[in-house]
Design a protein around this nucleic acid. Structure first.
Lengths: 209, 209
DNA sequence: CCCTCAATCTAAACGCCGTCAAGATATATT
DNA sequence: AATATATCTTGACGGCGTTTAGATTGAGGG
């Protein structure tokens, strides 16, 4: 459809605004985004988004939901091999890599002041990365699956996910520097993080302490 | 000193503004804070803070530095026993408890857009919680200390710190609910988290996978 | 085919925000 | 006492999200 077939009807403004917001966040993080900037990029007035999304939070919720799907894509591109150890490491690395590739989106996903957590689509989309990791963790632990009703399983998954989130968030916040000599966050993820993950998920059984 | 000895001289505006900002963040998180609100609470005009802190970032940097010291206080109140296992668990619990008690400050500490990371006081203050945890982790691992020049030590500390940060951030973001049946974040930290930490830092040696 | 009507977007305004420039005032210095 | 400096106010600017009223467009029913 045409980009603008008339002054008062964009054509597909809803999708255009989501794309504009997504691009803004990609380019400069959440602090670059503003509802007016997204509207301007879509070629409409500042008040136009309100009709489609209600508020800035509504638009950012769409962007966040897309971001969760993007995480799932990152995780879908690795793992699935016959080697559970390699799988869990690769998944972990992919998770942090997503954060490094899309820092604005990664941070947005944890900004409950900017994202509507009551959106009915949220629970099933947001849980998918956790489910993917749970399967890999079960295989790593030599189990056939995880049961969230078992406290031990839930605790292990939650801890593993928290560690990955923490690693990513620490790297993005430039909090890794005191512990590793590194130039950039990217070099850390490429060079040091794989070795860290080897230590976190060792191949050989070893006593824990 | 008097709260206001004259119209144009507050007396100790700098401290009053820091306190006002700290209180605002305590009451309603970072989204409640504004430079104008802090100024109003201190009883001065919106432009007054500029002279003492340059910008909102300058004021928030002071609040963030205070928050790091508060984390250190939380960590100082536990541990130090003859039981390394109990210590590392208690420290971990204290860390997450701080996040739950001061969610606004916890989040502020990771907002590099709001805090001046180039402040000369930052490195030595921000590293202290990590150092405290490093000692406890060394004891837990049966070592006398940690050497950040050893990659294995740096990796272990960074992972442990990332896990704690991740746990806290996940809890604050209400991301623990899918994994645990719980009413509030507070009840999770009180009831389930100690058991999670027992699993994370077991007393008996066991094979890791 | 036209006419009505609902959907869509604009224009203008409101009250916030952080920040800057200029001016007023109080304290410190000489 | 006179001057200088530090401190705070006033007023303004541009940007923000959002609201209200109005203009325009596309669609469906006679």
């Amino acid at each position: 459809m045409p980009r603008k077939r008339s002054k008062y009807h964009h054509g597909d403004l809803r999708a255009a605004l989501i794309r504009a917001a997504d691009d803004l966040i990609t380019e400069g993080g959440i602090e670059t985004f503003s509802l007016r900037a997204a509207a301007q990029r879509a070629g409409v007035s500042p008040a136009a988004p309100a009709h489609h999304f209600g508020s800035a939070k509504g638009l950012l919720t769409e962007v966040a939901l897309l971001a969760y799907e993007r995480v799932a894509q990152y995780l879908a591109e690795v793992g699935g091999s016959a080697d559970p150890v390699a799988d869990i490491r690769a998944l972990s690395l992919a998770f942090v890599t997503f954060a490094l590739d899309h820092p604005g989106h990664f941070r947005l996903m944890f900004r409950n002041d900017l994202v509507n957590r009551d959106d009915p689509r949220y629970p099933e989309i947001a849980i998918k990365p956790g489910e993917r990791l749970a399967l890999a963790l079960a295989a790593y632990q030599g189990k056939s699956g995880m049961d969230l009703d078992r406290f031990e399983d839930a605790a292990d998954i939650f801890c593993a996910l928290s560690t990955l989130h923490g690693l990513a968030d620490m790297v993005l916040a430039e909090k890794a520097a005191p512990f590793f000599r590194k130039a950039t966050s990217r070099s850390f993820v490429k060079k040091q993080l794989p070795k860290v993950l080897e230590r976190l998920y060792p191949r050989k059984k070893r006593t824990r302490i």
